[in-house]
Nucleic acid binder design. Structure first.
Lengths: 161, 161
DNA sequence: AAAAATAGTTGCTATTGTCCACCAATTGCA
DNA sequence: TGCAATTGGTGGACAATAGCAACTATTTTT
C-alpha cells in the first residue's frame, strides 16, 4: 500500500482549488490517478497490472470467446494500433490467443487460454474488492449512486444502450 | 470535437463487462480517458493542454502567490520531480515564475505572470464549461450529487479537511 | 557537531498514446 | 462484373509521462 497523507499535513489546511472545486472532470481526473496507482499495487506481478485495458480485455475474452479486437478497443477507448499492442503483450504472457476469423479473414477472434482463465478468476475477486476498499469511506448507498450515474455516462460514451 | 460513437454501432448491443459493471474504479478510469481527451481538444493551443496538473497549478499560483511547488505537487498527486518539470514547462511558456524563498532557501515560491493571469481568466471559463458540457446528459442535480461525493473522496486522498 | 529530514534537480528507463501510412480483405455500387 | 470505398489489423515514429534513484543544498533535530 502507498501511504497517501504521509505527513500530518503538507497542505495548508484551508486551501481552495478555485473553480475546480465545482468541476466534475477535475475530480474524475485526479481520483483516477490515485485509484489507478492503488490498483496497480494490488495487481503487482499479475501480468495485467499497469494501464487500462488489460483487465477489461481479459474478462471480455473470457466471457465472449471469439470476440474481435476492434470491439474491445471500442469499449476501452483505444485505437486499433494500441489495441494490437495490448493483445501482443497478453499473447506473450499467454493469457489469450488470436485466430483469424473464418468469416472474415481480415478480422481476428480472441480466445482465452488456461492461464488467462485462471487469471480471470483472480481478477474478478481482486478488482471489485480494490474498488470497494479504495472507496470504502464512501457509504455503500452513495457508492452505488455514483456508480449508477457513471455507468450511464460510460455506456453513453461507448454507445452502449 | 471528437466523434465518440462514429458508427451506428460497432459494439454488439448486449455486451456486458462482467464484474466491472459494478466496479466504480472501472468507470472512473474509463471516463477519465474520455473526459481528458475532450478537455485537451478544448484547450488546444492554450499552453495548458495535455496532462493533469497544469490547470490546477496555474489557478493555485494565481490564487496563492508564493505557493510552494511541493504543496501543489501534493494536491495534484505528482512527485517532486514531476512537479519540477511541470513548472519548467510553465516557466518556459512564461505563465509563472519561480523565486527562492527568503524564509527557506531550499524552497521556492511561485508567482503568476501577466500572461499566466490572463490565461487563468480563460481557464476559469473553459474548464468548468467543458465539464458541464461533457456531462450534460446527466441531470444537474445528479451531477452535483456525484461531485459532492467525489469531492469528499478527493479531499480525503490529499488530506484536506 | 553530527545526523536526519526536507526541497528541489537531474538522469534514466519503461510505457503509453497518437498519428500516419500501409496491406489485405470485404462490401457497395454502377 | 469490376472498381472504389470501407474495414480490420499491423508497424513505425515521436512525444509525453510516470516512476525511480541518486545527488546537492539547506534546515532541523538531538
Amino acid at each position: 500500500m502507498r501511504k497517501l497523507p504521509a505527513k500530518p499535513s503538507i497542505v495548508p489546511k484551508d486551501i481552495n482549488i478555485d473553480v475546480l472545486e465545482d468541476t466534475l472532470s477535475f475530480y474524475i481526473r485526479t481520483i483516477n490517478i490515485a485509484v489507478s496507482r492503488d490498483l496497480d499495487e494490488r495487481l503487482e506481478g499479475l501480468d495485467v497490472a499497469k494501464g487500462t485495458g488489460k483487465i477489461t480485455t481479459l474478462l471480455l475474452v473470457d466471457d465472449y470467446p471469439g470476440i474481435r479486437p476492434s470491439v474491445i478497443a471500442h469499449l476501452i477507448l483505444k485505437d486499433r494500433s494500441a489495441m494490437g499492442r495490448l493483445i501482443d503483450q497478453m499473447e506473450d504472457h499467454e493469457l489469450i490467443r488470436r485466430e483469424v476469423s473464418p468469416d472474415d479473414s481480415r478480422a481476428q477472434e480472441l480466445y482465452i487460454t488456461e492461464a488467462g482463465a485462471a487469471l480471470a478468476v483472480k481478477i474478478r475477486e481482486i478488482v471489485p474488492e480494490q474498488s470497494r476498499d479504495f472507496f470504502s469511506f464512501i457509504p455503500k448507498d452513495e457508492q452505488r449512486l455514483v456508480m449508477d450515474i457513471l455507468r450511464r455516462a460510460y455506456r453513453r460514451i461507448v454507445g452502449l444502450p
